[in-house]
């Protein structure tokens, strides 16, 4: 197994196919990162919102004004 290009510049250029190859990899990278980060942020937001609701319930034990 050996590096297939003469130099790093060659690797980036990919014999004039560089823009296509790097665009495809770039878009995929962004999309996969979004898939991974989005549920993590959603979970954080859920906990934050629920904590607020719990606080509200504690300061108002009869539940008046909630729901």
């Amino acid at each position: 197994m050996k590096f297939q290009f003469e130099s790093f510049a060659d690797f980036i250029a990919m014999n004039n196919h560089g823009p296509y190859v790097w665009a495809a990899y770039g878009i995929t990278f962004i999309a996969l990162t979004y898939l991974l980060v989005s549920p993590v942020l959603q979970k954080k937001a859920f906990f934050k919102q629920q904590q607020k609701l719990q606080k509200l319930a504690q300061s108002n034990p009869d539940g008046q004004g909630i729901e």
Partner: peptide, 25 residues
Amino acid sequence: GAVWGLAFAPADYKQGNSYRIIYIH
């Protein structure tokens, strides 16, 4: 897989380097 496919796999004799998109497509 991506680094191997981008830098170390041989180029395709017909398509050249554009075929490296196969590794994500």
